[in-house]
Design a protein around this nucleic acid. Sequence first.
DNA 1: TAGATTGTTAATCGATTAACAATC
DNA 2: TAGATTGTTAATCGATTAACAATC
Lengths: 206, 206
Amino acid sequence: MKNLPHKTIERLSQYRRALLLCHAKGMTYIYSHEIAKIQHITAVQVRRDIMLIGYTGTLRKGYNVKELIDLIGQIIDSKEGINVCIVGIGNLGRAITNYFSGKRTKLSIVAVFDVDKGKVGKKYYGIECFDIADLTKVIKEKKIEIAIMTVPGEDAPMISDILVKAGIIGMLNYTPKPVNVPKEVYLEEYDMITSLEKVAFFVKTH
Amino acid sequence: MKNLPHKTIERLSQYRRALLLCHAKGMTYIYSHEIAKIQHITAVQVRRDIMLIGYTGTLRKGYNVKELIDLIGQIIDSKEGINVCIVGIGNLGRAITNYFSGKRTKLSIVAVFDVDKGKVGKKYYGIECFDIADLTKVIKEKKIEIAIMTVPGEDAPMISDILVKAGIIGMLNYTPKPVNVPKEVYLEEYDMITSLEKVAFFVKTH
DNA sequence: TAGATTGTTAATCGATTAACAATC
DNA sequence: TAGATTGTTAATCGATTAACAATC
């Protein structure tokens, strides 16, 4: 697929999430304005995104829910599937692991890691916990390509370096500490405090 | 303060986070390119954001760390402070509560809520847990203006309605289910699965 | 048919970056 | 002075929205 805008990729993921719910409810067709309503955006934007991925709806009936789900899958999922690990199985690590378990067939959490020896060997939502000292070995053995960091902020830079050396090519950093990775590694950082401060700011200014 | 771009607000929050660390390390001045490096952005962007809030650095010395921290505080914090609650004290709710406790003086988590009677009355990181049935009452009593939803997705729409009726003016929705709020309420939604799918997509396309 | 919908181009809006003057 | 830095305008880039043709 050519060059889809970053924002379109994000929205496609959200459309799919919404469409899966609609599909489960037995809906077969959906209008652009219905998708728009769910996502708090405009119907034009939905139609434009769908146009960009080359799908065509039916005039007066809208889009076929199942077909659209499948097409979005073809665009954003990788064919072979990608293995993911969670580094740091504290509250946040557990939340993500639980949240995710069994939700997407093409993305699998195949290992979680922690420093705490009391956690090593246990299973979290069906996923085995390994010693963080074995990061490199397990990442290679299990062919893990994406890591989600949920360790304490002060450990983030060091863990990040180990992950990069172990061959990770995508990283999601949920610690409050920004990390540096080489440009070949795709990095996404998210800080909950920033989100909350943003809400607080816009609440203030109505 | 006039109309700062949304993206600038986000970055100001991040600059402050980084500056606080620098300040703690004893740094008194910082260059725009140093801030840029930490945040993975360009020095021009940092200078432009700082220009927008009306601060002026010193040529050849950079910006005064303490002054900049204080000025960002004046811009993004509200003078009186804002009370926040967490609705749903599962893994994610606990992660945020812990993460946040004592980090910002102007934003305080003053209550957490859950349906589980076993959790009600207990304290989580120093914050009392209330029965979700008492949402409205507690929100009014404690003058809570912002709610962070970390309940299971299927409960999100109903809880959201209750929160809005109780007078919440800002909401952060961490459930995978989008909710609808009246336009007077500022809503921010974040779905971890979308973030992960985005990373997976860009990893695939190098 | 009239009304509702999709598909698409062009216009607009918002955000980033390039370019450069000022100056310590 | 030369080099490094800040501050700021103008240009560019990217994303959204307006406008409208097509048609069931």
